[in-house]
């Protein structure tokens, strides 16, 4: 890769490489052409999945009586998801059942977001197809999961709020039914938009350097600050996706609450 200032260095391509899906993985001095059945974002998904398996199967030390170091950090995060998200929202009974799913959501999204922050890697969560697939899991649990748990009548009971006049009930049930899909859509858009927007802001700030040269040096500092904010957003979005998935599943499974 050429250094900034030379003609071959294109900062827009460099930053967009983080968010745009393609069949090429550009590394310094070499471009790896991926096979047609796998895109760059799909590769990142596989990479993240393998990384999580390695971390939880081999690096995490289960036999430690008093966890220290990385094991301690992982346990703190798992415990946070279980005690602060699963139990208060789903109740103790369901918390144990749904914790593996919620932890998978949290660590997988967090992993993808953090991988996207590493230079030369790509942010798979800035691809709407990836976030759509993740939101589909929640949608499946909100619909099929509710029917399997509470039956068809229980599913429709969840769509019928109490204390509503019978005259407007059909309209409310229609809006509630529409709401299931809107909630999944909002989950999808939220993650996708937040991850894409962060990188776009960095692109715009670095673009000022190309346009105005040394006069735009403050924008470099801003870009670094935004990158730090992105790191926070990576954790925040993983948390929000997990929290809202739990809220939406709970609303359908426990309509009485």
């Amino acid at each position: 890769m050429s250094s900034p200032g030379t003609e071959a260095f294109k900062i827009d391509e460099y930053v967009l490489h983080h968010v745009v899906n393609s069949h090429e993985w550009r590394l310094p001095g070499i471009t790896i052409t991926l096979p047609s059945f796998i895109s760059l974002h799909a590769l990142m998904l596989i990479f993240c999945a393998v990384l999580l398996i390695v971390i939880f199967c081999f690096i995490y030390k289960k036999e430690q009586r008093v966890p220290t170091g990385f094991t301690n950090a992982l346990e703190a995060l798992v415990e946070y998801v279980y005690k602060e998200i699963a139990i208060p929202i789903l109740g103790k009974g369901d918390a144990l059942k749904f914790s593996p799913l919620l932890c998978t959501f949290f660590f997988f999204i967090l992993g993808l977001n953090l991988i996207g922050m590493v230079p030369l890697f790509a942010t798979a969560t800035s691809n709407v197809n990836v976030t759509c697939a993740l939101a589909s899991v929640t949608l499946f649990l909100m619909t099929v999961g509710t029917i399997m748990r509470n039956g068809i009548s229980g599913f429709f009971k969840a769509l019928t709020p109490s204390g509503v006049p019978i005259l407007i009930l059909p309209g409310i049930v229609f809006l509630e039914f529409l709401g299931i899909f809107i909630k999944a859509f909002a989950l999808m858009v939220r993650l996708f938009a937040n991850m894409l927007a962060g990188h776009m802001v960095i692109l715009l700030l670095l673009g000022l350097l190309i346009l105005y040269g040394v006069y735009a040096l403050p924008s470099l500092i801003l870009a670094v600050a935004i990158s730090a904010l992105e790191l926070f957003v990576a954790f925040l979005q993983a948390y929000i996706f997990t929290l809202l998935s739990a809220v939406f599943i709970s609303q359908m499974h426990h309509p009485e609450h």
Binding site: P88, I89, L178, G179, F181, I182, K183, F185, A186, L187, V189, R190, I240, L243, L244, V247, F248, H257
Partner: peptide, 25 residues
Amino acid sequence: TDQDNRSGNALAASAWNIIGGMLGA
């Protein structure tokens, strides 16, 4: 309390549901 938690969660969910509702529909 649990009620506070539930209200907070509902508020957080509603904010994006409103945007998602308009955009999605």
